[in-house]
Amino acid sequence: MITVERLTRRYGDFLAVDDVSFTCQPGRVTGFLGPNGAGKTTTMRVVVGLTPATSGRATIGGHAYRDIPNPGRHVGVLLDASAQHAGRTGREVLTLGARTMGLPDRRVDEMLDLVSLTPVESRRRVRHYSLGMRQRLGIAHALIGDPSVLILDEPANGLDPAGIRWMRGLLQGFAEQGGTVLLSSHLLHEVEIIADDMILIGHGRIVAHGDKESLLASAGSAACLVSSSDNEWLAEALTRAGLAVTPQWGALRVAAEPVEVGRVALAAAVALTELRPADGGFEDLFLELTSDTQRDPAATGVAS
């Protein structure tokens, strides 16, 4: 478990993290989301002891990171995939990590295989790695100690679609085995898919915290698109059930979760041809909650 209690980090007059508190539970992936400069990376650096807190504290399993013996065996960390010795090979990077943690060299081959770095690639200097390859190497290094906690900052940067899907499965499997994952990312859609809980931060302060469903429900943003063999009859059934229905592009937009719409359709004996969350639901919620921290205003068109 990761516990952050009233954490503040100040740089002179600049307040990077302002009285932040949250927990990350075992068996769950927690997404840490916010605009650039919101305080995500600073918070994560404090959690792993790279940046001292001005006040408050952060613990992992009840201990400050600096007090955990051989911390790599308990906490896997990837904060910057490019912060690796460019002159070493990928295999050398992992071998040094394994030996520092007192692990057998066979663990290196296991991790290279896990992240799909080939023997030829593992003997290549890191300076010749693509960003995606560096991410894979960084994830391998984070996992080499078989930790119970993972703290990852933008781990999908540079990965292609297949690599992102691979990472998604890897982290979900880690959590299913009881691991704790704190994941920061700008890929909102990916976090929406993988995260069990979400923390939204802006200007160094937590603006929302909870699972996706509860966040959407609390903001009144839950919505889905549905089509059926008889949209007119379905719309009547949904309206009778007290749900707001709006025709949209040959389908119906309903202010409810898909499971609720499915129940109404089943009771009305209507065959559905499409049922999915409405595009932009969580993205709209994220932008709304962090609107005063966004660098760019909402686009309204292209200037001529």
Rank of each mutant, 00 (worst) to 15 (best):
G56R: 12
T41M: 00
G37S: 11
L50R: 12
K40C: 04
A58S: 10
R99Y: 01
G97L: 11
T42E: 07
D80S: 06
G31C: 02
R45I: 02
T59M: 05
D67C: 07
T54K: 12
V47C: 02
G62C: 12
K40E: 04
G61Y: 08
G37H: 12
A53P: 11
T100R: 10
P71T: 13
E92F: 01
L79A: 06
T42M: 12
G34Q: 02
G61F: 08
Y65E: 06
R66Y: 00
V93W: 00
L33W: 04
P52R: 14
T89C: 03
G37R: 09
R99I: 06
N36H: 03
D80P: 06
T59D: 04
G39K: 07
K40R: 07
H63L: 14
R88G: 00
P69Y: 02
H74A: 12
A64L: 08
I68N: 12
P35L: 04
G72L: 12
G61L: 07
V48Y: 06
H63D: 15
V46A: 11
P52I: 02
L33P: 04
G61E: 08
V75A: 03
P69C: 01
F32P: 01
T59R: 14
L50M: 13
V93A: 03
V47D: 00
V75K: 05
L96R: 09
A86K: 14
A86I: 08
H74Y: 10
V77A: 06
S55K: 15
D67Q: 12
R66L: 05
H85D: 05
R91N: 00
R57T: 15
V75L: 03
G90S: 03
Y65N: 09
N70L: 14
A81C: 07
P71W: 07
P71G: 13
H74P: 04
N70I: 06
E92C: 00
A86Y: 07
L79V: 06
G34K: 01
R99T: 12
P52Q: 09
V29L: 14
P35R: 01
S55A: 15
P71D: 12
A64G: 11
P69H: 01
G34S: 01
G72T: 13
A83M: 11
G39R: 07
H85Y: 11
Y65D: 12
L94V: 07
